[in-house]
Nucleic acid binder design. Structure first.
Length: 275
DNA sequence: ACACGTGTTATGCG
DNA sequence: TCGCATAACACGTG
């Protein structure tokens, strides 16, 4: 399930393999993935347009057409979306695979094709695969509700946005209107790296702790982009059903629902209240 | 059979 | 209206 790193890989793939190409046909027949557009609406807007750039904020990406004079194509991978162009893909880990950082090659069940763009050059189409259909393809997406991208937010901005409120810290950093791009796994990984408890009220952090979290989050994010996805994190493999062990100190980790999501943390290295 | 889930959002409540 | 919690969404997987 894609978080910022997987989406960034998908964006880079689109930039590399789809930008510069002109749209010949669009299959937007999946009315749920393409909502609120009616059938053919996205196709009518895009056919004849040329993709000129691919952008991303958080987990949302969009493709610019005709240098900005045409409509943007917004793409979101939801919980299980994957962009495939020819032999390359980016997004949700290979279906049925080990989820490692090996070259992605499998597009999965053909029934999971939810949105397709074909090009005039006759080359490989851009396909959104999504077994759960929680992904989206829309024209001119509204991104006004998103906070700054988690990888690029400044220190001062991070302090001001994250360090307030009574919600648990983990819920705060997963709130896409506060900072954009952090999902459940990346949140656990970054909090573990920063030695901060996910259940701390966000406003209880001082500036030094907020700075530590920002650095840990950025490091975890960049590492995940390089290695192929959030599932390559150091903590993630230890989020098993049984006896999760802190990969750093060996203590038995805690598993609880925080911010509505399953959360794992080390009670020794991420204590709350502070000792 | 049945609970769970790496995301988003409408709805409810104080 | 705001801040926060929860249910619902769709559907494959263990």
């Amino acid at each position: 399930m894609p978080e910022l790193p997987e989406v960034e890989r998908a964006r880079a793939l689109i930039e590399e393999r789809a930008v510069g190409r002109t749209v010949a046909a669009v299959d937007d027949a999946d009315g749920y993935v393409c909502r609120p557009h009616g059938p053919g609406e996205i196709a009518d807007a895009l056919v004849g347009r040329t993709f000129t750039a691919a952008y991303r904020v958080g987990k949302s990406m969009w493709v610019e057409t005709d240098g900005g004079s045409g409509p943007d194509l917004g793409l979101h991978l939801g919980m299980a979306g994957r962009i495939v162009i020819g032999e390359e893909s980016g997004g949700d880990p290979v279906y049925g695979g080990s989820g490692g950082s090996q070259a992605d090659h499998t597009e999965g069940n053909p029934a999971w094709r939810r949105f397709t763009v074909e090009f005039e050059d006759g080359g490989p189409p851009l396909v959104l695969f999504d077994k759960r259909r929680l992904g989206r393809a829309v024209l001119d997406p509204d991104l006004s509700h998103l906070g700054p991208d988690a990888e690029e937010i400044s220190r001062d901005d991070f302090r001001a946005r994250v360090g307030k409120g009574d919600a648990p810290l983990k819920a705060r950093i997963m709130d896409q209107s506060v900072i954009a791009g952090v999902g459940n796994l990346l949140a656990d990984e970054a909090l573990w790296r920063a030695h901060l408890s996910p259940i701390r009220p966000a406003a209880s952090l001082d500036d030094a702790e907020l700075d530590r979290l920002r650095v840990a989050l950025r490091a975890a994010t960049r590492r995940a982009i390089k290695l192929g996805g959030v599932h390559t994190g150091e903590l993630i493999p230890h989020r098993n059903r049984k006896d999760g062990i802190c990969p750093s100190c060996g203590a038995e980790m805690v598993r609880e629902t925080v911010g509505g999501r399953t959360t794992w943390w080390c009670p020794v290295e991420q204590p709350w209240p502070l000792p």
